[in-house]
Amino acid sequence: MHFERDRKNPTRIYYVIDEDECVECSVCLRSGCCPTEALYQPELVWPRTVRKNFSDPLKIHPETRIPGRGTEEMKTNEVTGRYRRGMYGMAFELGRPGVGARFHDVQKVAQALAALGIAFEENNPVTKLMADRSKGLIKPDVLDEKVLSAIVEFMIPAERLPQVLEVLDRVSQEIDTVFSGDIITRVGEDGAVPYADEIRKRGRFLSINGKSNVGLGRPLAKV
């Protein structure tokens, strides 16, 4: 957002939304913050439509049928059986918290991971935008689009964690934004969280808080 002076009446100054920076999250519209109700949602056409899909949590992705920009991931794992013991789910949320990201930065991260031979989560909106999943290439027409958050999501065998973190440390210095990292595991039969020691041993940050699926969903996946 920036100020502009009215051409006909130079004493009048007004705000202008910077369309290139706007991620179409619609929070300004919903807040009712404009006293003169001058804000409106212009009609969006491809490729700008991806901004809204990835930034406005009210928009239900046509592919995932989930509001927001992600997937069910661990939230329904006892039913889907997606994350099994010996595997870690990982997600890297480009642009989060609050900075936003362009898809050329999303592509840099995806390319670095693809070089490790990683298979991206099928039912994920970023994966759906890939032109070549084996190389982590995003469709060229969306590369300049800016979104609030775009999640690169995948699963790895537990032993590959150090290698993945090393690559992410490197590529994080090559992008013009931030990303938040997530790690998911099925709890061990003894109740242990297998990645906790591995991450702490390396002196890396691991949050004290997080999400826990308490296993009440039915039918249970056959694992």
Binding site: N77, Y83, S180, D182, S212, V214
Partner: peptide
């Protein structure tokens, strides 16, 4: 707990 998730922080 069946499945857990942690944050790895901001990169």
């Amino acid at each position: 707990k069946h499945t857990v998730e942690n944050s790895l922080g901001i990169f």
